[in-house]
Design a binder for these strands. Sequence first.
RNA 1: GUGGCUGUAGCUCAAUUGGUUAGAGCAUCAGAUUGUGGUUCUGAGGGUUGCGGGAUCGUUCCCCGUCAGCCACCCCA
Length: 412
Amino acid sequence: MFKRVPGTKDILPNETPSWQRIETEARKVFSLYNYQEIRTPIIEDAALFNRTLGATTEIVQKQMFIIHNQEDTYALRPEGTASIVRSYLENSLDKTSGFTKLYYIGPMFRLERPQKGRLRQFHHIGCEAIGSQDAALDVEVIALASQLLENFGITGYKIILNSLGCLKDKQALSSELEKNLSEKSKELCCDCQERLKKNVLRVLDCKNEKCRLIVKELSVNQSHLCPDCLSHFEEVKKGLKLLNIPFEIQDHLVRGLDYYNRTVFEITHSNLGSQDAIAAGGRYNNLVRELGGPELGGIGFAFGVERLFLAAGERVANSQKKLIYLITLGEAAKETGIKILNQLRKNNIACDTDYLSKSLKGALRAANDAAANLVLILGDDELKNNIITLKDMSQSTQKEVKLEDLVEELKC
RNA sequence: GUGGCUGUAGCUCAAUUGGUUAGAGCAUCAGAUUGUGGUUCUGAGGGUUGCGGGAUCGUUCCCCGUCAGCCACCCCA
């Protein structure tokens, strides 16, 4: 027998209602904030991710699903932002409107070792607002994320916020860290010694206690921020307070991807275990230009859908659907039956029958399992008199209706 | 990529220090006087004990390998 590829999941019929609910809710909230959906291919030129996420990041170095064509190297997208900015520029959205708000829903791929809340194919619900550097936009985006969570019915989450500063600030911080940490490099954990070479900022959020102490001594807070970035950050904080959105500043929150600068944030939930981020995002003021576009700022975030479900706990999606179940007895009735089903469906009435030629008792059981609220019984007796029996399953009552009046009867 | 734990029916789990035909609940299907569901009762089907090797008179149980899953590290949504 064939098996799923490791780290992938089948989303089965008993789970799809929850997915549909989340997606519908997301679309609703995005449109409240005037975001429009964009759908980009799941494969891209691998170099796109190299360029945007950073060539030294683990995602690019180890975690991309690579497809080699004869002359090209494609990658299954590991995240959404790069593709969307690519599409934004390729389709000249920057020229058709000054400011663009986009959202997306779809699968992402990373070749990691699977674990709780970490799959090789997972799903993002995210958005990108491109074309403005306004701090009010940062506030709106975070407010949007928090409203999404509320509408999903998820509580107990925490919004963590920080500012990395502009490119210059980031570089200054990096070189300062490099200088200070290399003196103590032997005291750092193995991972951090690696980070020191590849991405110093990551040392700041190391979980190792020793490293934390060392970092604490360096007392990195927002002191590396230039006046502009500092006031931007202040405005963001002020805006969030204005909207009563609780948040926590963590000056060791850096993000892993190169394109982030200024505002970065993460939303965590304690239900998730070690992969505790259900959403993350931030500002990327150099990304558009990096991809050959104009000097335009942007900000976005993404939710991990599978992680949302973990945060929400067991959720029963009660779908209050209406279903009519037709039971026919005998060959003659069966023929009339398929005509009735067809007629009902043409009239937008949901209906089904059993295709296993069960006994009446068995068919009623099947109707019950299908959660039908109404059953139509068509047997020899009914056929002879040109009627059909309607049985209300919850009331356990039944009545007879003329076949020609059936559709009208069921419409009300 | 590194480390630890686990792998028995569709699902959740049993199987007495290694000892006869590997059990139960749920689920499925069928019946309980010939055309009436949910509750109840009865019965049936369903397992190469993940796969491969080894040690043993003998293994679901011990050893090795492999695959898969879980958890943590790393990384990240």
